[in-house]
Nucleic acid binder design. Structure first.
Length: 432
RNA sequence: UUGACCGUAGCUCAGUUGGUUAGAGCGCCGGGUUGUGGUCCCGGAGGUCGGGGGUUCAAAUCCCCUCGGUCAACCCA
């Protein structure tokens, strides 16, 4: 194996790629139903865009693909999309509220694992320009409705509030003081984390740390009245929609720009440490950090690859069928198949055919495998008589319909005939 | 970045204490009606045993390095 896709990346081939696209289209439908329009932003940005947003986070400090272009611009492949979208907002200042959805690959230099890649796809949505808790609710509801719409049942919504900037800092101080006091009980790695960012310690999985974390101060005590009211309103909104959630006072997200609401969606169908399918929250200072006005925002992103893993685990959201409508079998050299296929495709019919002048038997086999419901046969007899043979494939109820399995029809009628047959089938299929 | 396990045909895997031309199932191709698909029968193609180096008379098998995957820590989608 000399040449292969770089570590942590992969090729997604036919049925899987169709499934990926279907998932994105489903998301687009849900988002646009809620008034979000798509934003397509560059896959790389000036490195400053990400630096300003998360200097202290691992994602920005050690996982970015940085490079200089031939013009010596210092750039980075985007490790996340919220910063890019916020930058686009600052640059274009669309009317408020601005509601945008997005989809696409992101890049982080991490050690790959199941459900964790160096290039991975996310879908997400952001709402800029409102600090109304109902905006938080709308955003969470969109994520929830989309995920449950994929057929995911074993999904857990975890929510928390990180308070306002001052609350967050007060909490950070209280947390740091607490952990310092019990530093000798922490693991060596835990003490290291404490020096960098005490918040991170809250998601440690080492047993020694867990014991200490269990007694750590809770964010609730640091909330301002406004932040507490906001969070209460968000929870009330979720309840009014019947969206089940769990409160986790120790939920902190990986990016440091979150204020007030933070949430995460995890799947119990995924085992291992990679059970989070996505998350988001409110980031009221982000736009200002990027040089824009004090505009609040709230949003989320979902990991497409993990969503699909969760769908696999729950047996939902299968890949769309790649089956052809018609397979053209031509044993007169293949030229007729070319003409017929193009004619039928021009009429919107999904057509497959064989190449290389294979035997009729081989072509019929290929027709069977293609999943086509109908086969069009062209042999020397048909060619001479200006006809084609139309055959109902066995896997698709050839005998059940009661009609003869194969009949000859004039070549010039074939497109209209097939269009009619397929339309009838579609109508029957939709009423079943 | 750290540790553990793994890497044999397109796919899923066998391969006995290192020992002759490395096997199976599925898939693929051809034949079994000189114009007809599933099943069945027969035949065939396809492998630098992830790569490199070493030990040995002899390495898929043992050792080292490396690449890739998986699991955990870390981190996160």
């Amino acid at each position: 194996m000399s040449l292969q896709a770089p570590r942590g990346t992969r090729d997604i081939l036919a049925p899987d790629s169709a499934r990926l696209r279907a998932l994105v289209e489903t998301f687009a439908g849900a988002a646009e139903l809620a008034g979000y329009g798509q934003v397509v932003s560059p896959m790389f940005e000036q490195i400053e865009v990400f630096r300003r947003v998360g200097e202290a986070t691992d994602i920005v400090s050690k996982e970015m693909y940085e490079f200089r272009d031939p013009g010596d611009r210092h750039l980075a492949l985007r490790p996340e999309l919220t910063a890019s979208v916020a930058r686009a907002f600052v640059q274009h200042r669309p009317p408020l509220p601005w509601k945008a959805w997005y989809e696409g690959p992101q890049f982080r230099y991490e050690k790959p694992q199941a459900g964790r890649f160096r290039q991975f796809n996310q879908v997400g949505a952001e709402l800029f320009g409102s600090d109304d808790p109902q905006a938080d609710v709308e955003v969470i509801a969109l994520a929830w409705r989309f995920c449950t719409g994929l057929g995911l049942r074993e999904l857990r919504l975890v929510v928390n509030s990180l308070g306002d900037r001052a609350d967050r800092e007060a909490y950070l101080a209280a947390l740091a003081a607490y952990f310092e006091r019990r530093a000798d009980e922490l693991s060596a790695q835990g003490r290291e984390t404490l020096g960098r960012n005490p918040l991170r310690l809250l998601d440690s999985k080492r047993p020694e740390d867990l014991a200490v974390v269990a007694g750590a101060p809770v964010i609730d005590d640091c909330w301002s009245e406004a932040a507490a009211d906001h969070f209460a309103a968000v929870l009330a909104g979720l309840e009014s929609l019947g969206i089940p959630f769990q409160r986790n006072p120790r939920l902190v997200r990986g990016l440091d720009y979150y204020r007030r609401t933070a949430f995460e969606l995890a799947s119990d169908a995924l085992d291992g440490a990679q059970d989070a399918v996505g998350g988001g929250g409110r980031y009221d200072g982000l736009v200002a950090d990027l040089g824009g006005p004090e505009v609040p925002g709230v949003g989320f992103a979902l990991g497409v690859d993990r969503l699909l893993l969760a769908c696999d685990a729950e047996g939902s959201f299968p890949a769309p069928s790649g089956a052809a409508d018609v397979f053209v079998v031509d044993v007169t050299g293949g030229g007729e198949a070319t003409l017929l296929a193009e004619e039928l495709r021009g009429a919107g019919i999904r057509v497959e055919r064989a190449f290389d002048g294979r035997s009729m038997k081989a072509q019929m086999k290929a027709a069977d495998r293609s999943g086509a419901r109908w086969a069009l046969l062209i042999g020397s007899d048909e060619l001479a008589g200006g006809q084609v043979s139309l055959r109902r494939m066995r896997a698709h109820g050839a005998t059940a319909t009661g009609e003869s399995v194969q009949r000859r029809i004039p070549r010039r009628d074939i497109t209209a005939e097939l269009a009619c047959l397929l339309a009838t089938e579609a109508a029957e299929g939709s009423t079943l």
